[in-house]
Design a binder for these strands. Sequence first.
RNA 1: GGGUGAUUAGCUCAGUUGGUUAGAGCGCUACCUUGACAUGGUAGAGGUCAGAGGUUCGACUCCUCUAUCACCCACCA
Length: 900
Amino acid sequence: MSANLDKTYNHHDVERRWSSAHWESEGIYEAESRNVTDGGKKPYTVLMPPPNVTGSLTLGHVLNHTLQDIFIRYQRMSGREALWLPGTDHAGIATQTVVEKKLRAQGISRYDLGRKEFLDHVWQWREEYGGLILRQLRTLGISCDWRRNLFTMDQSASKAVRHTFIRLYRDGLIYRGKRIINWCPVSQTALSDEEVIMKSRKDKLVYVRYPLANREGEYITIATVRPETILADVAIAVNPDDPRYAGLIGEYAVVPVAGRHVPIIADDYVDRQFGTGALKITPAHDPNDFDVAARHNLPVLSVVGRDGKMTDEFGYAGMDRFDAREKIITDLDNRGNLVRVEDYEHNVGYSERADVVVEPYLSEQWFVRMEPLAEKALQAVNDGGVRFHPSHWINTYRHWMENIRDWCISRQLWWGHRIPAWYDQEGNIWVSESYEEACHLAGTDKLVQDEDVLDTWFSSWLWPLTTLGWEGGQEANDDLQAFYPTDTLVTGPDIIFFWVARMIMAGLYFRGDVPFRDVYFTSIIRDMKGRKLSKSLGNSPDPLKVMETYGTDALRFTIVYIAPLGQDVLFGEEKCEFGRNFATKIWNATRLVFIQREKVFGSMKSFEDAYRIFSPDQTLLSDAQRWILGRYHTVLAAYHKAFSQFRLNDITRLIYDFFRSDYCDWYLETLKIELACKEDEQEKRHAVMLAVSLLEGILQVLHPVMPFITEELWHHILERSEHESIARSDMPRSDEHWTGESVQDRFSPVMNVISEARSLRAVFGVPNDMKAGLVLGVPDKEKRDVFSANSQYVTEMTGCMLEVADGSLERPPHSASSVVDGNELFMPLEGLISFDKEIARLEKELGNVSSYVKKMEKKLANKGFTDNAPPDVVEGERAKLQEARNNLEKLQTNLSVLCE
RNA sequence: GGGUGAUUAGCUCAGUUGGUUAGAGCGCUACCUUGACAUGGUAGAGGUCAGAGGUUCGACUCCUCUAUCACCCACCA
């Protein structure tokens, strides 16, 4: 028999044997559109959130991709054409930064190289290092269709980007305009609002007085946190209803240092309560001021450049904006303009990537008009066309959609999709697919292409379409036809605006249908102290190391087990002991089953022949076997239900509890006894096959979570070729026959007696090697027969000879006693019994039961309860009371005997 | 300033439409290694379910308020 297992489980061997590379060559994970269109099988599609090419594997990826893999494997085993689309994202700023840094180490700047040569370097870098994250993900055992791997800068995806840009431009949804945008002085590019992180920051609120131009000795005082921008002031604004300043409106103030005369204007925007109620207006450096200035036809002056350094001619030029701030406070003080300085804590926008304070910056940028897109995308979610799990994220989504602002999509970078717009010498804009086409449209070949590239998310929002081969046209290819819309998107709630919402917009706009049906928002992983995982804190375990130490299956199982839907997760790598121990347990339990199989069947061949046609035979089933079949099918039903509710941590709990408690601790123990005691060969063979078939089912339901060990063990169930995979086997379904009301559970009472007897042994310290006696009084004839039929299990599992008597038995002398399911259980303990201990034990139990009885009596005496509660509930409570009274009576009798 | 989530055993968490004497894992205590497994087994200790009201015959579960923590959104300088 070749099928026996090594004594110890070695996850390295198993993971190597059933690696991603192995299955890629077998094509196990590939999906075909023709299987959908021809056969009519309902497909199931998952879209991988493309990791950044610069990325390396984090625990966030592990959780995210494990969940996706679980969904896809479950559906694949459920018979659907399951397609998981992988890919990577070019990640504009991140990648460009990495390559620039590398070049800088060699003393080269990107400007030395020029645009084209620099991009060659980036592509080369991507060739060398860009595949890392996908290789790492493969070690996780994820089952993507790798043939369809897409990079957001691939030709087809780039074509789609150009086409969608052109279409939105022609539809009037993309425009170019001079606006105040968020500027990152480090990356030196515009950012979208979403790329700005608000952080609390301690600053100074500086009160500055401006002399009035025409009133000698009079001043108006303003408060600002950015005194360095005073140099670009174009007005002072006050609230029109503010009596303090009513007389000053229309006057002029002199800007300190700059000496410029600026008007004092009235605008509702000004809050009378804040500061002095007078606000300096600096349109180039504050979006609100920009609006105010626009309303009052004021000029726009700028004193901070794209590198965050001062550009003015008042002696600050070239200074960093924060240094200039310090200096101007001193200068204002020297000139007698400084009134006072207060500590002030407020929220300031930081660049997501570079982590520096963003500069509101006036520049020409491209924008997407979002309102028309948002309207439909909001409706799709409100109508349930897209469902969120957990659903409370709808509130966040709705709020963003209802307050949406235009999306700044141009970036002053080189790495990315270049904006397909050309300018002629008059400055007219020609948006088109190519230079040639633009020339044709413009009627000249003197065109210059826009220097900027598009926001990375401008390609990401097309991901559901581009991964299926869409290039921006109206036509649909086979893949789109078959697999769009996709089914489940698994992603973090942190990119709900960046990505999820925009994909919904793009899907609806370009294809007229939502891009996915369900969105599963993953947990955020934190360390054991609840802090976010970060490189700088050093609290981020390396998943590859964790997999190496504990096993990939162990990591996958553990992380799903501890990650409930919609809750943060506290992770420490030692938690993986849990998953590792479980894997070991599975291995060992399987060994037991196989050892028994070998004993009974001798050769694998004779087992296989019988097993292939096996189904449980009613006439051969023991009570224990009926019980485990009932449990198995109950758990299966709950398992499938949990999947339909996206409760993946539930499925791990279900399997864990069932396997450990029911299958191993109880059922396998009964199996040993049955095989040891049964004479009949047919019964033995039947028992083994049942054990194997249950095990096979367990391996299958566990396979989506622990793909490696289940694959390995499944190949030992029968002799299967290495081309076959459990991933393509049929997921077991729950059979109501075994869970229905008519299937009587005769084994649980036996289990209860066993537990109680073990407890008595433990409490009284009965030595392990001492065979004790056990007497069970069962008044009910039918029940008595059940215990008699199963007495062997009790005897074997407790080390106590069980004697089943009727209800009229006498209490054996010197015995410990207990009541189990209304039946009296005695354990004669001549010489071992401590009367004090027994009395204490019985008294404690008596106390519990009598207070319970009182509680129940009170409940049932309450007319409100008996009248209002459903009859079956009342009936149930009556039965409980009856049983408790019965127990109480017996406990009292036993106690009184002892106390005599 | 708005919004969301959390608060259950020493620790980490389950508890699915209100009816269980409130569960698990880890940790702890006791006992148990001659064939599945000590990465294990058996038994046990340990909780006024954050607090206060309310709805109900009945609340860990529903409502209101409070406290603490976390996160998201927000153009008052």
